[in-house]
Simulated assay, not measured.
Amino acid sequence: MWRALASNALTFLVVATFLLGGLILWGQSQYKAEGPLDTAICLRVKGGSNMNKVSRDLEDQGAISSATIFRMAADYTDKSQQLKAGSFLIPEGASMAEIIDEVTRSGASTCGTEVEYRIGVTRTQTRVRELDPATLNFVEVASFVVGEDEVPEVYQEKRNQADTRYRVSLAEGVTSWQVVEGLKAVDALTGEVSEIPPEGMLAPDSYEISPGDERTALLQKMQDRQQERIARVWETRQDGLPLSSPEEMLILASIIEKETGIPEERGQVASVFVNRLKQGMKLQTDPTVIYGVTKGQGTLGRGLRRSELRRNTPWNTYLIDGLPPTPIANPGLASLQAAVAPDETDFVFFVADGTGGHTFAKTLQEHNRNVAKWREIEAERNNSGN
């Protein structure tokens, strides 16, 4: 009898072990298999949450087949206590293993809300955007001009969410004074700025920030990035350029930046100024004269007066020879590259063409015809009220 009982117990143990092994193998396959999600989602994990709550949220949204397996796998891999707060992009078909890795890896949000402070030449704009998981494109939900528009409630609401991401973006061609003034209006930053950085030494780019970051620390990051760009681009310069130093390259790049907003024109504009420098001609460019009037503090907001064109300032390139003593704005990478690799042309003149671009000329006679056409366009616009 005892022998029979022992035999039955052994049989039961073998069957149980077999079933348990099969269950474990099945669970492992479910853990690593492609998930049921057919459209990407943005999973928000609040501070103080746990794997139980996350597993239920994922199951409710159809991202996993079993909350139980998800929790057990997180425990088995010792990742339950590594859960991070944030907003995480869960792509379609993501496995449980991939999801657990995403929510425990770094804590850096990969979707959700982004607040961007864009510092431009004329204004600082704040945009609140949400990432659409289905298209992976940001959708703007609010936008306002700092100091002019009423602050929308959604901005304050998103500012109070711990997983909201922030960035500061500098437009190409902003002056250092404009950057500092813009940063003063960014309420996510802290600290005073006692000194305006040298003109041209702030890299137009996008910078991720965190609430409470110091303004001076961000300005230093901008200067470090611009210095790295200057050094790297200077090493790629063409032979025979009338530029003797990286500083002169930076000055020329800033003029190119202010003369055209059309990427395809940068090489041609650069060629005009390089040709003029080689021939000993004055640069005769309005943006430098404007800088002599404003010193980069705001915009002129009107056309130049004849008295200003005759005013003797270090930046009046109608009067001085060669380059002005300093940059007139912070040029972007493309303008730096154009300064050291201009198009090969014989152009020494250019004028607006009425479409936002310019018409280029090799001779004064040709240039005068182009100027006459531009004046006709201006007259027609003035007469029509445009």
Rank of each mutant, 00 (worst) to 15 (best):
G22H: 02
V289S: 09
F18W: 12
T175A: 01
P36W: 09
E157K: 12
R237Y: 03
R305P: 06
Q61M: 14
I377G: 03
I209Y: 09
P36G: 07
S194M: 11
G27C: 12
S49E: 14
T317R: 13
N382D: 14
T345E: 00
L13Y: 09
F70W: 11
R56G: 08
I196K: 04
L131T: 08
V180M: 01
G292F: 04
L25R: 01
G200E: 00
M201H: 01
V128A: 13
T326H: 01
A217T: 14
E378V: 08
R276K: 04
A85S: 15
A108R: 14
D213R: 10
F360Y: 05
R310D: 15
Q178P: 02
D224P: 00
A379I: 00
I119Q: 11
P133Q: 13
G27S: 15
D57N: 13
S49F: 06
V141D: 10
D101F: 00
E116I: 08
Q284M: 12
I100D: 03
L241F: 07
A67Y: 11
A334T: 11
Y76S: 07
I251N: 00
A361F: 02
A4V: 15
E344A: 10
G267H: 06
R369V: 01
A134I: 05
T355G: 09
A185Q: 15
Q156M: 10
V179H: 02
F138I: 13
L136S: 13
V274A: 04
T175M: 00
N383D: 15
S55Q: 11
Y207S: 01
L202Q: 04
L20G: 10
F88M: 10
S95R: 04
A339K: 02
V145W: 08
E153S: 15
E259Y: 05
L250A: 02
D57R: 12
G27L: 10
W26I: 03
T124I: 05
Q226W: 02
W315H: 10
Q161C: 08
